[in-house]
Amino acid sequence: MSARLARAASSLVVIAVLLAAWELAVGYGLLKAYQFPPPSKIARGFVELSLTGFPTGVSLWTHTGVTIWRVLQGYVAAILLAVPLGLLIGALPVLDKLSAPLIVFCRSVATLSLLPLVIVWFGAGELTKVVLIGYGCFWTMLSNVIAGVRYVDPVLVRAARSFGLQGPELYREVVLPAALPRIFAGARMALGVGFMVIVGAEMIGTIQGLGALIMEARTFYRSEITIVGMLVIGLLGFLISSGLAGLERLLMPWAGNLDQVRR
């Protein structure tokens, strides 16, 4: 515990020293303030962004809320579609073999490359962003659900069969719980994908959302606002992924440290 504390303290020191050096470097004119806005300016940007907003009236919280709402819609829709479909495909080897190349390909399609097509179909509004996020999350989730149920430890399946379980019962009682860790990992990966996609998708054709915020700020040479936006995006991603990890531990206390298991 004290070792972890020491490590955290040294991390803080490193970051503090770096921030101070940065501030000084700009103060002495070694770095250009508009390219490398010093921490003090970023802090002022943060205050402005949360009170007045950028553009005026659209506060940081609005941008954040809009982004979260978009990600959430696409993500939830993708999970709701991918989980049942994945469980079905994973249960039927023939279906799995029929669909495998297609799924691999669809997963390889760069989600943002669909942007022009989706704009043609749904216009440049909200739906386009939600669809893109949904697409990215869907294939990530789908392939993880399928892999989860397909690659259950055969010993567990044999053990269950030795107790007379078979067919749907075997699937429900053993294959499904055994696949849960992988399914959860997929859900976490999918959310990461969702955040990747939203930032890109918001850079085109909108003024709300964190992606739009950082792009807009650049247009007006407000790099400190851009940096605040980036930090919020990073923080959001971090909070959500640790939240999901906590949820995993809560729901699957039996699984132990999943990252360790996978290594």
Binding site: G211, A217, S223
Partner: peptide, 16 residues
Amino acid sequence: LLRPIPPLAWIPLAII
């Protein structure tokens, strides 16, 4: 600190 920021979010700064 920087890892959670998706690479795409660096685009505006990269342009600056």
